[in-house]
Design a protein around this nucleic acid. Structure first.
Lengths: 231, 231
DNA sequence: TGAATAGTGTCTTTCAGACAATATGCC
DNA sequence: GGCATATTGTCTGAAAGACACTATTCA
């Protein structure tokens, strides 16, 4: 069929939503906005907005996140496209969802924008969400867990310098189960993706912990395989 | 921003394209259509079309495939959404690509529809493709290879009854490298997902091969893990 | 010296991967 | 018997997973 014939068809709206995760207070948090208008006024929703005519989908994702929250994520990838006919009660809206990670050190003073109040919400105590956003978030969590098993994207949620305990806690929080400390460290260190630093972090009246850095440059972040948590 | 404010924005067209793979003549084939109109007239393209106002994206994928080729695939999942601003020279078109598998026994007499001639093309000798379809196809092949490693979707491309050699050849063709026969059989049989039949296939002046069936019912096709080819 | 967290090694089991000889059916 | 494909088992090395004690700092 020609494009011409379809110029008159009802064109759907296309939006881009961004699910942004980070680790904070030993907990997995997602960034949500509170809706100021109907429908679903007052409920929380995944930040997002319309795709502009001249930008790519990924550009739209970066822009919306920046506009709504002032944040540029450390990692961003396309998640899935949601297009059930009645997912928005007003009109047909097809949403390309993106999945993003933020370093916990860059939590920034979440600027709340013109249109919405922005909040970090624990994945363990999600409120009722607008539209089909609960489903989208569930899917994003699945993706996060899956990706942690065979890539090193998880490091994008840690501060640049971290302890092995920080790292283990990140996995434990996301998998929601404890890991064996010895096996975890053996595994991580054997991967050769960490640079031990000659500094330590002191945090109370106990032995200080060595700090490490992720060898980012050598690893494509996307194509790297080799991590096979869990244990 | 309200939907209202954006009613006037240039809305993109949204199409659904379906990359349909099967195994045929010991080769991985993809279903393509020859374009009858500009742009890219005469070139081959991935079958697809516009999403109708009341159907879901997945419904659109099934419908387009049926309309253009008369085929209903054994497996279908969303692949990725392509939305670069100039990927269609005429207007902004965002394409939700789907990834589908067909049993080789159901190759059917590919009905060529009103608008296009349909062909099975070897993945080893792809012609120049319309739009960004070469990129989409490359991505689909990556996904197919990845999925074969940790799911059993591959069985959706085999006839219902097959020999272990059939199965091994499928993996070899898709991975484009030979596998060890003994290790392959050991691995596959240990998974317990095959039902050996009391029948054999005779194919020439040599020992006949035992036939097997995939235990489809017990396996969710999507959530099943456990296969870890390659060898 | 007690409290709190950091750091470390062994054993067992499982699985991937290398490798070659025998079995069966048809001509 | 000769040809062509089907079928089968052992060994080795690597990695997963279970498991508990010592080290360091500070109050």
């Amino acid at each position: 069929m020609s494009v011409r014939r379809h110029q008159e068809l009802e064109r759907p709206l296309v939006t881009v939503d961004v699910i942004l995760f980070t680790i904070r207070e030993c907990d997995l948090k997602v960034l949500l906005v509170r809706r100021r208008f109907e429908p679903f006024q007052g409920q929380m929703a995944i930040p997002g907005g319309f795709v502009l005519p001249t930008e790519s989908l990924e550009e739209a994702a970066f822009r919306e996140l920046r506009e709504e929250t002032g944040i540029t994520p450390a990692y961003l990838e396309q998640l899935y496209t949601f297009g059930a006919p009645r997912r928005d009660p007003r009109t047909r809206v097809i949403t390309v969802a993106y999945f993003a990670l933020l370093r916990s050190e860059e939590l920034a003073p979440v600027a709340d924008s013109d249109a919405s109040a922005v909040e970090w919400v624990s994945m363990k105590s999600l409120p009722r969400l607008a539209f089909d956003h609960a489903e989208i978030l569930e899917y994003a969590l699945q993706r996060l867990r899956a990706k942690l098993e065979y890539t090193t994207v998880g490091f994008q949620m840690l501060p640049r310098e971290f302890t092995l305990t920080d790292l283990q806690q990140m996995y434990e929080v996301i998998y929601d189960r404890p890991l064996d400390k010895r096996n975890f460290r053996k595994k991580v260190l054997s991967l050769g993706i960490l640079t031990p630093l000659n500094r330590q972090r002191r945090a109370g009246s106990h032995r200080p912990a060595r700090l490490y850095r992720f060898k980012e440059s050598e690893h494509g972040l996307l194509k790297d395989r080799g991590i096979t948590f869990p244990m």
